[in-house]
């Protein structure tokens, strides 16, 4: 039902009128030093693709690459972090597979279920919709500062809190709102890239109000110090033909818009009538959010940031 054509978050397979299967896989190298935290982040990131399709995860399998020379206790901690997030998601972790590799890598293949009529793709954003973003941006920049041992304890704490947070909260907040038209999660392509994918798949233009973008406060200072990951520049170059970046957007904010996110939040395209209710519910949750823009009829560029 959903394949590779629209750059969506996961594959969806129709089983019967009541049920469709969502299948996804993601894994990556450590972004933080603490193995338990890394396990949590990698699992939250893998589970996110199921939430971004409107589904609930049911079953997960570990994918592990781990060097022979490292202490197996480190691997146990990574797996414990993953296990805890899978349990929190209400799913079952049923084993997995590991191979020997020079650099550790961890993630999950996750299966989830969704009613076929409630599948949330990235291709149904409608002109007139408002755009709500959950989770603050800037974790790629903070992770670069962590690598350079320049990150403050509060920056690390905020980034880790955000990266380990399940997108289940955002998904459940909008569950019964019929005005929700389209969802995607924000990962490696940054807000700009994933907004382009949504706009392109939906044949619309997304107008972002950069002043309303939630971001981790320290990302501003670190971007200005040049702690911007290579992925942000790649995103800028890759999407430049498809977007218009207003000169009024300060450089650090541009960097934050292009910043690749690890276990990022959800970008939700929702009819204006249901947006206040969604924001009310998010207000009562631990998730930072912002009403960051709107959907318009297509006009030359897929994303306009101002």
């Amino acid at each position: 039902m959903v394949g590779i054509e629209t750059s969506d978050d996961a594959a969806v397979y129709y089983i019967n009128d009541e049920t469709a299967l969502i299948q996804t896989l993601d894994f990556f190298t450590p972004v933080v030093d603490d193995p338990y935290t890394f396990g949590q982040i990698a699992a939250a990131n893998s589970l996110s693709d199921v939430y971004a399709m409107g589904g609930d995860p049911i079953l997960a399998l570990n994918i592990v690459c781990f060097p022979d020379c490292l202490d197996p206790a480190i691997l146990s901690e990574i797996l414990r972090g993953g296990q805890d997030k899978v349990i929190e998601a209400g799913a079952v972790l049923a084993g997995g597979h590991s191979v020997s590799d020079d650099e550790p890598k961890y993630g999950l293949s996750v299966a989830g279920l969704v009613h076929p009529l409630k599948i949330m793709t990235n291709s149904q954003a409608k002109p007139g919709d408002l755009l709500i973003l959950t989770k603050p941006l800037g974790v790629g920049i903070i992770n670069t500062a962590i690598k350079g041992e320049m990150a403050s304890p509060s920056a690390v704490e905020n980034a880790v809190f955000s990266m380990t947070l399940l997108n289940r909260i955002g998904k459940e907040a909008m569950e019964d709102l019929e005005g929700v038209h389209s969802i995607t999660d924000i990962t490696g392509f940054g807000l700009i890239g994933h907004a382009v994918e949504m706009a392109e798949a939906s044949n619309v233009t997304i107008r972002l109000n950069s002043r309303e973008i939630p971001y981790i406060r320290e990302a501003e200072e670190y971007a200005q110090l040049g702690l911007v990951p290579a992925g942000a520049y790649k995103n800028r170059d890759f999407f430049k033909e498809k977007i218009f970046m207003s000169e009024g957007v300060p450089m650090y904010l541009q960097d934050i818009l292009y910043d690749p996110q690890t276990s990022g939040g959800l970008l939700i395209s929702i009819a204006p009538k249901d947006a206040p209710e969604l924001m009310n519910r998010l207000e009562d949750s631990p998730v930072a959010y912002g009403c960051i823009g709107k959907v318009e009829v297509f006009q030359n560029r897929f994303v306009i940031a101002e």
Binding site: G226, L227, A230
Partner: peptide
């Protein structure tokens, strides 16, 4: 990437 980042670092 390093070229761009050094330009930002210098300006800051």
């Amino acid at each position: 990437t390093s070229k761009e980042n050094i330009s930002r670092a210098a300006q800051a």
